[in-house]
Structures are given as C-alpha cells and as structure tokens.
Design a protein around this nucleic acid. Structure first.
Lengths: 209, 209, 209, 209
DNA sequence: AATGAATGAGCCTTCATTCAT
DNA sequence: AATGAATGAAGGCTCATTCAT
C-alpha cells in the first residue's frame, strides 16, 4: 500500500514543485519585461524546460498570471496578517503595532520591488478582468486594515464615527504610494524609514500635529 | 490678409480638430478594452475613419497613448491647480481649500472613471517606459500637493518638521485609492462624499481624533 | 490667332517641362534608393511639388519607371549612334571607330553610374514585364552593334561566317560588365581606360593575340 | 550509441531537409513572380506549410533570398570549377577546355533559366545591399575565369601583357549576356550552341579572324 | 511526462492611388 | 492646374496554443 501510493505521492509532489517553479519563473520575467512583453517561451526558457511543458501545468498565459498574482498577494497579506487585530487595547499599542506592520511591509517593498511592480503595476492592467482581480487584492488589504480599525473603534481608542471602510482604503492608498515610491528610490532603505515615520504620523496625527 | 491665410488656417484648424478627435476616440477605447487589447483599427473605427488616416496624425500606437496620457494628466492637474497654494493663511483656510480641491478632484473621478482607469491603471503598465512616464505624472501631482504643504509650514500653521515630500506622496496615494474605489462604486457620488469627508479627516486630524 | 495659341503653347510647353522634371527627379531617386524602396512622395519631394501633382503627368509608379528607362536608354543609344556604321571601310577604321564609341560609352558609364544602375540593375528586376522591356533595350543595343558588324561583313573586312547576332549580343555583355565594374571602381576613369583597351583588344584580336 | 543520437539526428536531418525545401520553393516563386511581388505566404503555400513555419527556418524575407542566391551561385560556380585551370598547357587545350566549360555552363542556362533570372536579374536589384552581394558573385566568377587566363599567361600560350582582370570580367559579361539571351530564346538548345561557337570564337580569335 | 515543430489568427504599418478643394 | 488629406489593400512578422512523437 505504501509503495504504490508513495510513487504517486512523489509524482504529485514533483508536479507541485514544478508548478511552483513555473510560478516563480513567471514572476521573475513578468516583473522584468512586463506581462505583455513576456512570451511563454521566456518563462520556459528561464527554467530550461520546453515551452510545451508549460501547458501541462497551466491553462494558458493568463492562467499563470492569475497564479503569480495570487502568490504575490498571499505573500503581501501574510506580512500584514502576522499581527492580530485584537492584540491591541490602546492607541499607543496600536500605533506600535502599526509601526511594526509598516516596517515589515515597507521592508518587503524595499527588498522585492518586483512584488510591488506586479501587484500595483502589471497586475492592474494586464486585462480588464485582471484589473478587477487586482483591485480585489487591494480590497482584501483594505479589509485586513479595517479589522484593526474596527478593533480600535470597538475598544474605544478610535473615534466611534470613523468611516472605517473608506479610511482603510485610504491607508491602502498610502501603502500603494509607498510601494511605487520605493520602486524608483535611490536609497530604498532610507526612503522606507521616511515612509514609516511620515506615514504613521499622518495616519495617527494628521498633518496638523 | 484674410484670404490666403484663412484657407491655411482652416486646414490647420481641421487638422488640430482631427488630432483631438483621435485622442478622444483613443481615450475611449483604451479605457474600455485596455491598451493592449485595442487595435489601431478600433480607434479608427470609433471615428469612422480609415486606419491609414490614423497614421497621418500619430506616429504609432504608442505615440497616441502618450498623447492620451498627457491629455488626461493635464485635465487632472488643471483641477488641482485651480486653487493657489499661497491663498491660505490658517489651518482652517487650508482645510476648506483642501475640501474644495478634493471635491473637484473626486467629482472628476466620479464623472470620468475612464480618466482614473487611464492614469492609475492602463498608463502604468503599457510598457516599462510608460510606467516611468505615468509615475512621473503621479510625482507631478505630489509636487503640486507639496506646494500647499510647504505654504502651511512656511506660514506656521503646519508643523515645521513635517516630511513634506513623503507626506505629499502619501496623500497622492489616498487620491489614487479614491480613484480606484470610485471605479467600482455602486453609487459614485455618495462614495465620493464619503471620501471627501474621511480623506480630509485622516489628512488633517489623523485617525485618532 | 497667335495670342490664344501662344497661351496654349506655353501651357503645353510648361507641361512638357514638368514631365521632364519629374522624369529627371525620378531618375535620381530611383538610382539612389532603388525602384521598390522609392515612394511617389520621394519623387514629388525631390521636386518640391505635391505628390498628387505627379498623377497629373504619369499614370502610376510603373509608368514613370518606363519613361525613366526609355529616357536612359535613349541617352545610351545616342552615344552609340553618334557614329555611322557605313562610315568605315577597313578593319583599322572600324577599330578606330569602335575605340571612339567605347570611349564615349564608357565615359558615360564613368560619369553617370546612375544610368548604369538603372539600365543594368533596377530596370532589370522591377517586375517581370519590365525585365522584358529592359532586355529589349539590351537587344536594341545589340541591334545597333550588329549594324557595324554587318557593315564589316558586307565590306569584306570581317569574316563572312561571323555569327553577327550572337557576337553583337556578346559585345553587349562586355558593355554591361564594364558598366557594372565601373559602378564599384575606386578610380572610374583609370578603370574606363583599361576597359577600352582590353575590351577592344579581346573584341578584335581575341585573347590569343 | 545509436538509440538516442538517432532521434536527434533524424530531427536535424528533417530540419535540414525542410530548409532545403523552403530554399527550393522560394527559388521557384522568386523566379516566377519576382522577389518583390512574392509574399512569404506564396513560399509557404508552394510547400503547403503554414507561413509561421517559414519563420522557424529563416529570419525574414531577405534572409531566404540570401540563401537562395547563395545556393544558386554555388550551383553556377560548381559548373565552372569542374575543370582545373592548371590542366591545360597549350592554347588548343585551353580552347577545348573552354568549350567544355561553356557547354556545361550554357547548358545549365538553357535548362534552368530560373537560375539565370535569379543571379543576373532578381538578385541584382532586390535591394542595394544585395546588389553588392550579387556583384560579388559576378566577381567570384570573374576570379575563377582569371585563374584560367593566368595559367595561360604563366605557361606562355597567352600574351604576357593580357589585362587578365578586365578581360576576365569582360568574359563574365559574355556569360551574362548569354544567360539573358537564353532566357527569351525560342529554341534554347540551338541558341546555346550558337553561343558556344560564337562566344569561343570571339574570345580566342576576336571578330577579325 | 516532456518536448518543440507546426500553425494561423491577428496586428501594426506602409504606400500607391483617388478626389474634394 | 495643384494639392495633400483620406483611404484600405497588402504584407511582414509574432506568438499563444496544439499535438504527434
């Protein structure tokens, strides 16, 4: 029983590995040349496999982009979700938590601008349908952010009349802008720190304080 | 004096009109189908002209996109530049001014989501070079925003240690997010008003107040 | 009577001049860029006239080439026909005449390689039909050459069993080769003189003497 | 040893065969319709293959012409190079050799006028660069011819002051003219024999003897 | 399972020609 | 008579996708 199933398992495992490899290669070339300028042959070439093989693992060019985007979104969301919304009970705690999250997030941006390029640039315009999907990812980030805000409102350290949804979306806008800025920054790490500071400040204090 | 020059003038005028028509038609189809899915034939078809005619007015497909983007950027910037940074002398005045600007800007977003789609979606990913150009437009908006902030710092109603550049960029992020949100909003006008309120609030007071 | 007809005459004259101008301009650009790479706009541009005007004087692109070729052939033939076949009565006289003709012909080649390019290069391959027309020109040159040979046979200073037609054609081959050689010659004049000497020699003496 | 390599070998062999087929088909349609009037679709259609397949084997339209020309030049040169310049030690032997060469060459012309059309017509005028390449082929034939002449000069049965280079080129002119003549000859074989006789005669004896 | 040869839809672009002014 | 704006046929070329091996 184990013999046969192991063989099948190993096959499935290898297939899964290959899928991951292809997603990884596609991520690389998509962010380098852009989705439209990339050919299936480029992805296959990156891995040194025949481009017919690609079609054994993915439906078509669009399919791989969807998977690459999902993978990238997953990576980004995991960085945010690392903290628990419910963990904070005061404004000070939340602010510290936010700084931690921003630090992780903006570090990710500084270290892999490709991820930024993919989620905030390529994914947005590949085709109308994918625009929706990518906006969905933005919305998911906003949802995640909203959880934190709602926790604050619930616990009373944020104003009860805060427009949680729109504010969360606005904060996502700040995140996007940070990502795009780091894309062309001469010194991404220094820029990252400015964004953590200035971003947190405007978020908590507004520009007036 | 009028005889000869009028004929040439009329021709030049008609040519200019044609160029504008083509930019307009391209704007429409680009935002509907996306840049890559759009053919020159689609643009020409939209106007009911032969597609050879297109090439009398624009170098190639990329050329028209550049013009469409420039036109859109111009329209957006003119909405912001309507107010003068130096006009305000107190926080209250600046806040009122910001609300006016946001109103005009978000109204533009609500009324022509195509413009949003173009500047924040299509333009970003058409090709690597155009990504830079579009990010340049974002930067231009940030520059414009920075002028207002600097006025406040200068006049003393904004903190001297405000990181004007990054903060301006962050506010552009809010603008972008607003635009993208209105893109899929069920009731764009209502949504717009929420964004004006929530956006101004977070900008001036932060989430904590 | 003279008043009206003079006006009409002048018009006809001007039209004729313009036709000649166009032929001249076309000759220039055809030999520079080649027939296929040349557009009607190039011809018109060379003259500074609108390209619609071109079609008032020539049917189409092919038509102008035919005229350019005819003009060139005319120029070439006139150089040969300058001498009279019947003028010579001895081999020595004919040889001297041949040297004169070759001198004029090869000087023409050295001075206007464009003519060579047109008659022996462009004209040959513009299209299958024009190949025939150009080969007809070659045949006309051969006819002209044959007249001289026949004069010699008739007068008895050339062998009676000379295959006049084929020999004349072979001599045209020498002329063509000379033209093509001068096309890429570093020093066309020096090369021309070598061709006059070597050409006349092989023609009259063969390589053996 | 045979197993794996045979599969790859067969693939390479088939690819080579395909290339040859395409060259052959292109040769055919180029000579029929002319280079410029021929589309890639015509070449592919001739073989019953998709026109995308063409581009797996050749870079572009110009590339195939270069290969077709090279192939044709090779065929022509091989007919000449069949004899060895050094084989002859007397004028009589050289004349006999020349007659053999002319026989083979002109027979080739009579049998495949397409080859003539390609090397002396199409190849000349496809584009300026190819004109040079084709003139290079003519030069190569002249070089080959010059070897024979030099042998004669060296062995003393040809005059020491023979202008070998120009004379060789002149003889190539005769060859070209023969080719072009056979192109439109009613009875190519009969015409061929006239050219062998008259050509050899003028070459060795000149017209005077 | 892997490959890559074959395919053809599709698109950008050019340019000869027409015709209203 | 002169012009040049408009046109669309035509063609080169790419590349996602299929399928026989």
């Amino acid at each position: 029983m184990s013999g046969v199933s192991t063989a099948a398992d190993r096959a499935a495992e290898r297939a899964e590995q290959r899928r991951a490899d292809i997603v990884h290669a596609a991520f690389k070339v998509f962010t380098q040349r852009g989705y439209h300028a990339t050919g299936i042959a480029d992805i296959a070439g990156e891995l040194g496999i025949g481009h017919g093989t690609f079609y054994r693992y993915f439906e078509n060019k669009r399919d791989i982009l969807v998977h690459v985007l999902a993978d990238a979104a997953q990576r980004l969301l995991s960085v945010i979700d690392f903290d628990e919304p419910g963990d904070t009970d005061s404004l000070a705690e939340y602010r510290a938590q936010t700084e931690r999250i921003c630090h992780r997030l903006f570090t990710l941006f500084a270290e892999s601008p490709e991820l930024v390029r993919l989620l905030f640039v390529e994914g947005l315009a590949a085709d109308p349908e994918l625009t929706e999907l990518t906006l969905g990812t933005h919305r998911a980030i906003a949802e995640g952010t909203a959880l934190y805000l709602r926790n604050g409102v619930h616990k009373g350290f944020l104003p009860a009349d805060l427009d949680v949804e729109v504010t969360a979306h606005a904060l996502v806008g700040v995140i996007i802008s940070c990502g795009l800025s780091l894309l062309t920054a001469a010194d991404p790490v220094a820029e990252r720190d400015r964004w953590i500071r200035a971003g947190t400040r405007v978020m908590f204090d507004g520009i007036a304080h």
